[in-house]
Every structure is written in structure tokens, then in C-alpha cells.
Design a protein around this nucleic acid. Structure first.
Lengths: 190, 190
DNA sequence: CCGGAACACTTGACAACTAAAGCATCTCCG
DNA sequence: CGGAGATGCTTTAGTTGTCAAGTGTTCCGG
């Protein structure tokens, strides 16, 4: 969670929108406000889903997401890819995988070609378990978004699409070094 | 974080949008997809902001949010209100307050009228500290949302507004018991 | 004015996440 | 080949969060 306004001395883009009109501060803080609202919606949905998953299915959100990703990749996923999909760090994925493996819902399959890596895949038990919950989960989501009609949802979808692409681009490491020239990353798969 | 599709036996609202057209499955999974995208955007922004706050200001996101809320309420806030604003549980707020108090950024002010409760407020040091960071923080947000023009931002803002109201309504405990008739809540301020 | 319910906060146990360091393995260039 | 560097995953420490139970206050009907 995050967020705040308080310009105090709002540094840049104060007049971002003067292309349209002469008004200077009209668009002020709009980005901040939309971010706060975005965050609020996201948090609220997450909280509801987390609570229901726990109560009705006895599973945590993190594990559900983990299983969900594996379910749409029946051949299994490498840990690093999984961590990217789930948008969490590698260490976290390791822990989740350990637990779910212990419970028999997933299995690690070692890759004979590269002994560093392994794929994780759903077991039969894991697949049954997930499928039992997934439909209910979708119904919850549909209900939570029922305030918006199909048009509004599509609009929202498009707007977020624009945003997401831009965000992804911004998070990139400037430019992928054309031919491994230097590279200053030290650590792991984060 | 959450999300998934996998209908498997998608239960309800399959034909939610047939009012418009005869197509049955056209709107299928739209809610789920928009939720995934919403979550993705939110997570990405959060991740970026968290990282920058740590690197450039040496502060965590949770603490920044805590200070931010206090900053726009200079007279201080009660813990319960703060926990609602930050959308976290009371226990969490207690912990954060403890730490920030230890660092001298906030102070607890005991209410002589009601000795159960106390207000938390920024100290002078806390205010200076926060104000030093806030402007930079807003610039980050503006930059992250710079893919969208003023119109798009306003649209997004409105759409999320609709959603948020609906979500808040759904999370309500059905109806506040008219005159304390039973009440089955046990615990604290969660 | 007394006892129970509601309230405000704290505590404790634990889940989930991050960041940074630590293996082991692989790859590639000299 | 041989070794430096990249990769893939694990480990460790610490923060943030939840939930549930616990403590002390206040409120209110009898």
C-alpha cells in the first residue's frame, strides 16, 4: 500500500495539462488521486477474496494464485518464470513450493538437461483441488465487479491496458545490454 | 495478490450481457480479466514505489503511508480511524506506531476524556521528514501514470469510483443492527 | 451504582513477502 | 581445457500483515 499527496513544493509536471487549456493547476494531483483509488479498489477486492478463500476453501490467497498459474500451464513452470508471473521474488516461490509439495498438491520435476533448474507442476490431487475452487472464485469476482456493466468493464480494461504496458516498459532495466557487455546484477532471480 | 480464471464449470452470469446482444459467452471472463489487470497495475506501481522509497529515502512503504495519513490530519488520528484509512488491521497499526514512536517521528497523545483511546500525531521531526519525501513521491507517481493523458486519467478515476462504492457497499455487514440487539463480534478494532 | 456488553487498543503466533547472500551448475571465450 | 561470469534456486533475516485472544475503559439498563 502506498499513497500520498502533500505537494509542499510539487516539483515537476505542475502544468502538465496546459496543452489543453491555460489553467495551470487544474490537473494537479490527478495522478496521485487515481493511484489512491486504484490501490483502494485493489486492496478491497484482495481482502474480500482472501477472506472467502480462507473461510470457504481453507486456502490462502498466495497458494491459490500459485496453483492457478500452474493450472494454466499443465506442463509445469520453472521457478523463475513462476516468480515472474506471480510478481513475487524467488525466495517466496521457493517457500510456497516447499509447502505445497509437502501437501502433495504440486511436484518438482528436475530437468535432466540443466540440473540447476526444476519445473513445478500440479499433481493430480492438486489439479482436482484447484478446479473444485476455481469456479466459485470466479463467481466471487463477477459479483464484486457487478457494479459495472459490460461497457464500463471493457473501458476499464482498455485503460488499464495502456497503463500496464507503460509500467512494464518503465520497469525495464533501461535497455537490455545488446551483448552481455557488463551486467551489474549480483543476486538471484528476483 | 490473487486471481485466476479456469472456469471448469463457470457457474453464474454466463449470459450476463445478453441484454445487449444475443451472444451468450461474449462477456465471459471479462470480470476476471479486468481484475487480473487491475491487480497487475496495482502491484507494479507498488513495487516500484516501494523500491524507490527504500533506496532514495530509506523508508518502507508501510511507514510512509502511515506518516502520510498523519500529515493530512495534523491534529492526529485515533488508532482505529488510522487503521481504517490505511486499510489494515489494528494490530498492525499498533506495531507501526510503536516503531515510528521509537524513532521519534510520531507521538501518542492520550485522551483525558477517554482513557481507552489515544491519538497519534506527527512530531515536528516526523513532519519535516515526511515533507522532505512527499514531493518526490508524487513526482514518481505522476511519471508512472504519464502514459495516460488527462482525459484518460479522469475516465479511469470515474470508473474506479463506481467500483469502489460498490465494493464498500458489499463489504458492509449487511445492515447495522438497528439498536444494539445482539452483536456477535468479539475481538478488537479490526 | 452495579454488572455486562461494547469499545479501544495491545499482544502473540504465524503467514507472506522482500532483499541480500549463498550454493551449485552452466556457458562462453581465450 | 579452464576459469570468470551468468543463471537458477535456496537460505536467512527482517518487515508487514492477519487473526484471535487478552486487558483495561466506558456505557447503559436495571
Amino acid at each position: 500500500m502506498s499513497a500520498q499527496r502533500r505537494p509542499s513544493a510539487a516539483p515537476l509536471l505542475d502544468r502538465a495539462s496546459i496543452g489543453l487549456e491555460g489553467r495551470v493547476v487544474s490537473d494537479d494531483h490527478q495522478s496521485l488521486k487515481v493511484w489512491l483509488r486504484l490501490l483502494s479498489c485493489s486492496t478491497q477486492v484482495e481482502t474480500v477474496i482472501r477472506k472467502r478463500l480462507r473461510q470457504e476453501a481453507g486456502i490462502t490467497l498466495a497458494r491459490f494464485d500459485f496453483l492457478a498459474q500452474l493450472h494454466r500451464h499443465p506442463d509445469g513452470l520453472r521457478m523463475s518464470v513462476l516468480s515472474r508471473y506471480l510478481m513475487v521474488t524467488g525466495g517466496n516461490v521457493t517457500g510456497l513450493a516447499d509447502e505445497l509439495e509437502k501437501e502433495g498438491l504440486v511436484e518438482r520435476i528436475t530437468d535432466s538437461a540443466d540440473r540447476r533448474s526444476s519445473r513445478v507442476a500440479l499433481t493430480k490431487k492438486g489439479r482436482r483441488f484447484f478446479e473444485r475452487i476455481a469456479a466459485t472464485h470466479e463467481a466471487w469476482i463477477v459479483s464484486l465487479f457487478s457494479a459495472m456493466d459490460a461497457t464500463a468493464i471493457r473501458q476499464l480494461y482498455e485503460l488499464l491496458g495502456t497503463l500496464r504496458v507503460h509500467l512494464a516498459a518503465q520497469s525495464q532495466p533501461a535497455s537490455p545490454p545488446p551483448r552481455r557487455p557488463r551486467a551489474r546484477r549480483a543476486g538471484a532471480m528476483t
